[in-house]
Design a protein around this nucleic acid. Sequence first.
DNA 1: ATGAAATGGCCGTCGGATGC
DNA 2: GCATCCGACGGCCATTTCAT
Length: 271
Amino acid sequence: MTLSNPVWKPAVGLSIGVGRRTSMSRSNSFPITNARSSHLASPAGGAVSLADGIFRRICAREAPNTPNIRQIRKGYTEALRQADAELVLNVARALLTRGEHRWVAYELVHHHRAAMHRIGEPELEEFGRGIDSWWTVDAFSLELSGPAWRERQVEDGLIECWARSPDRWWRRVALVSTVALNARARGGRGDVPRTLFVCRILVKDADNMVAKALSWALRELIPYERQAVQSFLDSNREAIPRRVLREVMNKLSLGLKNPRRTTPKVVRPRG
DNA sequence: ATGAAATGGCCGTCGGATGC
DNA sequence: GCATCCGACGGCCATTTCAT
């Protein structure tokens, strides 16, 4: 089987400060400290230069997979810890012009407290421009739009606007953003009303990318209000995509999205 | 024959267990 | 207390199976 395999996969958790530390973070000898002061002295040019440096380091890696690229990102996060928010945002902007590894830009902002606080509607519209795949959407939603929405840096109306977008990827952004409201590993504290608000808008959406996100959003809500999720399924049973119904019901009843089959599958010869 | 649903497989992350 | 290991589970796409 060939799997189109993006380097970054969101999976259960991008570490956003609550994950365990790894040897990568410990052994990260990051040689940009000396250059930092000159970058900070000239923010505009410094941002481009820093972005260039990040890309050079990524390209220099023998195996440019997620852990290796993240190691590079962590080094820059550490080096930029005391930097102005605007510089970090400009580095992210410069990274986004490259068209690949968008998630690095999103993580840089996410892990810089002041920069993250600066994220509002204009910044989200800017940084989200060009999202056109599930992995760019999920990185954007989990790192930027979701946390910003959770902290009420943007209005509910913006998320509603995305949920009603003709663009499938923006509709998915609206749903995946709810994951940041609820997933503890991402700083979520549980927000039933705002999650179900988005789910109701998209409950009939047959697009596969949207349906999978709906399943994800509802499953993340179960630890907080399983009765609300059950009621949502009951009242939308006819409209909701079969996949969503099955996965969320599995999670409610068995604790797993796709429980392992207990009996071997019977394979019938075709034809 | 065809579309929908289910499954398989790959990679990434989490979090408990373990060892130093 | 900290680092590391590893099983469980998450994401997705591609393929297979099922239902009509």
